[in-house]
Simulated scan of single mutants.
Amino acid sequence: MESQVTNNANALRLFFTDDVFVVEDKSVQIVLPAVTEAVSATVSIPKVEAKEAVVVVENTVIPAEKPLPPSESYAQKGEILPIVEEPLQPKAFKFLGGNKKSVLILVNDAAYDVSTEQGRELLRKIVKAVDLATPDFALLNYANYKGTTYAELHQFFKPQIMLSFGVEASHLQLNLNWAGEIIVHETTRIIFAPNLHPLDSDLSAKKSLWGNLQKIK
Rank of each mutant, 00 (worst) to 15 (best):
P159W: 06
P33Q: 11
L81N: 07
S3N: 13
Q173G: 14
A133C: 08
F192P: 00
L81Q: 07
N144R: 06
N144G: 07
E186C: 14
D113T: 11
R120I: 13
N175T: 14
A50G: 05
N7M: 12
E86V: 13
A34K: 10
E117M: 03
L209G: 00
T42F: 08
L153N: 04
P194I: 08
F93M: 15
Q214A: 14
R13Q: 13
F16S: 09
V54Y: 11
N141T: 03
D136W: 01
Y142D: 04
L199S: 00
S170I: 11
P159R: 08
P46E: 15
F192C: 11
L32G: 13
N177E: 07
E168G: 10
E168D: 06
G97T: 00
D113F: 03
Q160W: 06
A9G: 11
A41S: 15
I105F: 07
V23G: 08
S164Q: 14
T148R: 06
R13V: 07
L139Y: 03
G211P: 04
I182P: 02
I62E: 06
T116C: 00
T17F: 09
K66V: 08
L163F: 04
A138S: 08
Y112S: 04
I216M: 05
V107F: 01
Y142R: 04
A151V: 15
Q4R: 09
A75D: 06
A205S: 14
K101I: 02
V103W: 01
S71G: 09
L199H: 01
K66H: 07
L153A: 03
P82V: 07
S71Y: 01
P67V: 14
L14K: 13
E121T: 01
Q118T: 08
E72L: 14
H197V: 00
G147W: 02
I216N: 02
E152R: 05
L176V: 03
S3E: 09
P33F: 11
A143C: 15
L209E: 01
I62V: 14
E24F: 09
V107G: 00
A179S: 14
L12R: 15
K94A: 01
G211T: 08
D25C: 09
K77I: 14
V22W: 13
S170K: 10
F15P: 05
P69Q: 06
E86S: 07
S115M: 02
Q89N: 12
I30C: 08
A75W: 05
A110R: 06
K91G: 04
L14W: 01
N10V: 15
L174D: 03
V55S: 06
I216R: 08
I182K: 11
E121H: 02
L174S: 13
L123P: 00
L203W: 05
E24L: 15
S40E: 06
E72Q: 13
N195K: 05
I80K: 09
L96D: 02
T116K: 03
F95M: 04
L96M: 05
D202E: 07
W178K: 10
E186K: 15
T36N: 11
I183M: 14
S115L: 05
L203Y: 09
K100R: 09
N177V: 11
V28Q: 10
P70W: 04
